[in-house]
Design a protein around this nucleic acid. Structure first.
Length: 436
RNA sequence: CGGAGCGUAGCGCAGUCUGGUAGCGCAUCAGUCUGGGGGACUGAGGGUCGUGGGUUCAAAUCCCGCCGCUCCGACCA
């Protein structure tokens, strides 16, 4: 993108309404704008990050054997009456009446809807197990939205639903999703830890929340440092083998990890002192096994091998995609701005033309822009160098190719790594290769 | 939902107590200088003072209602 023709409304001052780093930086770097309390418009740069996170989430869901679909945001109240949650959910649910006086709602989650779809479509035990997911906007009318996209009312969530014939199968699905989540978070450059959780209004008896460590997190967490050394991407764990998943799951659950609500001082004291880690955490995902809660209340059953009805065992698995944008920034920033992980940065590099109008600078910047196949922000604005440096650091792309008249005369640019601040002078072609 | 605040130029704010010409900084636009870490100077444009009513000769300012937003607490991907 050419910055001179793009909507990237950066802000120099700190917005007064933003209390935490990620919120301030998202506003300052021009990623989002608030349109109502807890409701945000995603500007071009922010949307690219959101899409990149979605892509990783999608790849890992697919790898775990889940199928993508898309359910609507607006749902009929009738479905929620069947499960009994229409009244239970309370004021957090945004209720809508259409022109025919039909009661509708803006979905806060989709258990009822997916169960309805499955009961219409799945008739035989041969058709299970299945896991379905979608990435869709949700609305929960939070009493007090805050912290920008971390705690908005409208948010983008990936929610998956598993259907198995028995508890043993459901447990395999649950573990698969847990592995998918750990892989997803690692790819996002986040250290996330699964912690035993309350099941809340969704119900059930097996539930974990995934907590990302960040100093501005909302809850206090305690965990065993053993989690820090686990590599989920290296091939040690796989979705295909129940035995392997079993080993994975016991690794996740035997090491101590708890939020302050579930913290057990006695068990904590048995963790080797050198391995005790304590800090603040942000919940970025939550998974539940809830048995037949919805299948039973809503009449989902399939015919079993013996000709008798079987009520499927279900689970649901949510990850806050839009919240992750905030979480990634909480985990990666400094005084100057955001430091994006390579995996989700809106663009790979910023090309800073320190002297637009200078033939050599212009030519080298164009070469760099083409060389990066447009996966870069070309700062071609007639601004001073200082402004460009400051905004490039604020936006936080992984690389900066700095093209100034000094080096341009003999074909050299500076390549700066945002994360470390390290700057090295080198030929343009080498800099381009380093970024790709 | 309990408690507390705030709505004045794109952003951040002063002015409100004590009614009488709507202001400052940043940003924007034009020009000059400058030119490797948010530069300087000169000039210009930009306002239904959240909204509806009331009091008054006169309301950003006083009174009442409404709306919006923020913060603290209890709750959540």
């Amino acid at each position: 993108m050419r910055l001179s023709r793009s909507l990237v409304p950066t802000i120099k001052e700190i917005p007064s309404e933003a209390q935490i780093a990620s919120h301030r930086l998202m506003l300052r770097a021009g990623l989002v704008r608030q349109t109502s309390a807890g409701i945000y418009a995603w500007l071009p740069l922010g949307l690219r990050v959101l899409r990149n996170i979605e892509r990783i989430v999608r790849q890992e869901q697919d790898a775990a054997g889940a199928q993508e679909m898309l359910m609507p945001t607006v749902q009929p109240a009738e479905l929620w009456r069947q499960s009994g949650r229409y009244e239970d959910y309370g004021r957090e649910m945004l209720r809508i009446t259409d022109r025919h006086d039909r009661e509708m709602l803006y979905g806060p989650t989709n258990e009822e809807m997916i169960t309805d779809i499955m009961r219409q479509s799945v008739k035989s035990y041969r058709e299970l197990p299945q896991i379905l997911y979608h990435i869709q906007w949700k609305f929960r009318d939070e009493v007090r939205p805050r912290f920008g996209v971390m705690r908005g009312r409208e948010f983008l969530m990936k929610d998956a639903y598993s259907f198995d014939l028995d508890r043993a199968g459901a447990v395999v699905s649950y573990r698969r999703m847990m592995l998918a989540y750990m892989r997803t978070f690692q790819r996002l450059g986040l250290r996330a830890i699964p912690m035993v959780a309350d099941t809340g209004p969704i119900g059930g008896d097996l539930s974990h929340e995934f907590i990302v460590l960040a100093p501005t997190g909302e809850s206090q967490v305690f965990y065993d440092a053993a989690f820090d050394d686990i590599d989920y991407l290296g091939g040690e764990f796989e979705h295909g083998s129940a035995e392997n998943l079993d080993r994975f799951f016991s690794l996740m659950t035997t090491n101590y990890a708890a939020t302050d609500e579930k913290h057990d001082a006695a068990t904590w004291d048995r963790v080797e002192p050198a391995r005790r880690r304590e800090g603040r955490g942000i919940e970025v995902g939550h998974i539940f096994y809830f048995g037949t809660k919805y299948s039973k209340s809503m009449g989902l059953s399939v015919t079993g091998a013996d000709g008798k009805p079987v009520i499927p065992e279900m689970g649901s698995y949510g990850v806050g995609v839009s919240r992750l944008v905030g979480a990634v920034i909480e985990a990666g920033h400094d005084e100057a701005g955001i430091i994006w992980p390579d995996s989700i940065a809106p663009y790979r590099a910023a090309i800073l033309n320190l002297k637009p109008g200078d033939a050599a600078c212009d030519r080298m910047c164009e070469t760099a822009y083409v060389g990066l196949a447009g996966d870069a922000i070309l700062d071609d604005r007639p601004e001073r160098a200082g402004v460009k440096f400051a905004e490039a650091d604020l936006i936080g792309l992984p690389w900066q190719i700095i093209v100034g008249p000094r080096g341009a005369a003999n074909g050299a640019v500076e390549l700066k790594r945002r994360a470390t601040g390290e700057r090295v002078e080198m030929p343009l072609s080498k800099a381009i290769r380093a970024c790709t």
